[in-house]
Design a protein around this nucleic acid. Structure first.
Lengths: 204, 204
DNA sequence: AAATATAATGAACAGTGTTTATTATTTCCA
DNA sequence: TGGAAATAATAAACACTGTTCATTATATTT
């Protein structure tokens, strides 16, 4: 009797429908502005039905983050073509900047928004971002091992590079960079310049 | 007739009461978790009364941010004691990290939260953060002018240093640094180390 | 003291995430 | 194959949210 299998498949399909609709709407309008009722409308089900597949909005966001991090990892991988580890890191960071600009709302819900750290991340692992982070870390480790950058501690090197890029992106996404009285249009250029400068600085 | 003056004074006092209650509650529980009704309860007024003094929650947040940025500027100023510009920048950044750790929710509502950029920052100036930013910028400019750091563009230098610190702080505040499998207790140490390393790196 | 302007509020509106009792559908077994 | 049991979907409600508005209370002015 393949009926339980079908049921499971149907359950998975329903979760897919929900998560797909959610992603599409989050990308278009941002996490905060999309309600469970909106998502329910979109997939033509009752709001309560969503709660048969996700215990709350946080759990749904967690799945959406999973998809988003996969998307990011693929995005980054496709842009790492060089052989030289330092050049690979450079490609990765520039790709990271581009991803953030292309999918602002996705970046927001992956790295800036508060939820669902409350419910999920407390005890359970936070493995969603692991792939993309590993991609960065391993290339940075190569750089450290080959003595290409002025770091001895690979973890601090990885975190520093990541924090540098994230700092720019998130200040920009929240318009805090406007404090510096920069014209809207030059910001991406300034960010690129700053990143290039940073990479040149850590180069031995 | 000093009656209109008194009225104005009373109006100002009321706004003070509101903003003070708001800050206290935001610091304790975070912006999102504090409702207008909560604030109204605290100051023993009806929720509707608050709307006689602030047109919406965003406008109130804007005032709270004003206070918070003032607090930050004072905090930073008190910690800048050195003569050497580079050392001054170092003191400033370390103080910035400490401020973020001491007033997490304040830092959140100043630099991470989305609102009130929607309503306020669109056309009006964003002068709340100007003081603290200027503090950093002027010291960084000194560094550049005296050839103490490997930057030629002061704006990029200022933004880079700020973004570096903010990147660490916000990744930590959102628990994203946990991706790096760091123990909770070592994070402040790692952040400090990373900042020190960064400053050592940009030093000529 | 009466009329007017100001301040404060109770009640409501439209929205949110979420739960529950009820209804519809499907699966199972006699 | 028909009726009981299990599953799936929903309508309605709950307790919130930010915000508005008609109404009431309090000052101020005439």
């Amino acid at each position: 009797m393949g009926i339980t299998e079908r049921k499971e498949r149907e359950k998975a399909e329903m979760r897919r429908r929900i998560v797909d609709a959610a992603i599409e709407m989050f990308v278009a309008e941002g996490y905060e502005k999309v309600s469970i009722r909106n998502i329910a409308d979109k997939i033509e089900y009752s709001p309560a039905t969503i709660y048969l597949y996700y215990k709350d909005k946080d759990e749904l966001l967690y799945d959406v983050q999973g998809e988003a991090f996969q998307k990011l990892a693929n995005y980054l991988r496709a842009r790492i073509t060089a052989e030289d580890p330092l050049e690979r890191v450079r490609q990765l960071i520039l790709a990271y900047l581009d991803f953030a600009r292309e999918y602002e709302e996705l970046y927001d819900l992956m790295f800036i928004i508060k939820a669902p750290m409350n419910s999920v991340q407390k005890d359970a692992e936070w493995d969603n971002g692991q792939d993309a982070f590993t991609l960065l870390r391993e290339n940075v480790i190569s750089c450290v091992e080959k003595g290409l950058i002025r770091f001895d501690n690979p973890m601090i090197a990885t975190l520093s590079i990541w924090a540098f890029a994230h700092g720019f992106i998130s200040l920009n996404l929240r318009c805090r960079i406007k404090i510096a009285e920069l014209g809207e249009e030059v910001i991406p250029i300034v960010m690129r310049q700053a990143v290039e400068h940073y990479l040149a600085t850590i180069k031995v």
